[in-house]
Amino acid sequence: MPAAMLIFLTILLTVILYLMSRKIFLHTKNPIFNPVLLSTTVIIIVFHYTGITFDQYKPGKDIMTFLLGPATVALALPLYLNRGVLLQALFPILFGICFGALATLTTAVLLAKLSGLDALIVASIAPKSITAPIAIEISRLTGGDPAIAVAFVVFTGTLGSIIGPSLLSSCKITNPIARGLAMGVTSHGQGTATILQEGALQGAMAGVAMAVAAIFISFIAPLYIPWLVNL
């Protein structure tokens, strides 16, 4: 098969699987059926059985991710539209986001080190609560691998979406601001979509938490993550 044909077919496969899994997700609203998890699993299985290598997929991947950068920049728009909610309690919100983001990153890295995982994995686990486009960039800057980082991001997003709301309730965290922020800090976009079902304030808070945590961790990551990994 000519290379251009293969590139076209792998792009077509990715787009079709994304659209199908998105339909399934929107229909079931079950965090387990998130489009990234479903599509990636099916693509890897298809490639495994057809013998397509990741190198053959790379040109298609580069075409498909061309707009990821501009899309990440566009995250400023919802943050700007929701900036009003920050003013409801500026200090508690900012402190809570930074505290939570730092606590989860530190716990993940230290536990991964204690488990005897190698430096590449430990560095890739660090941004697991950060929204995927920025976690990818952070992993590149700190000696991790973008694909492994995305896997941890999606795992954490799914886990938080499943257990988050009930765990917060059982810990008597009932304040809508606290619930929204906790879900955004832990499970980024997936957590935001989940807690939005509780109310607009929770959803706006989660969106703000996701963006602020990503910016905050981006600034400290280049120094803090290598230091923590090599501790």
Binding site: Y57, T65, P146
Partner: peptide, 16 residues
Amino acid sequence: LLKHLSFFFIPIAVGL
């Protein structure tokens, strides 16, 4: 772009 943000993560995650 924001609505379909998760689409972009699929090709990257295939790197797994």
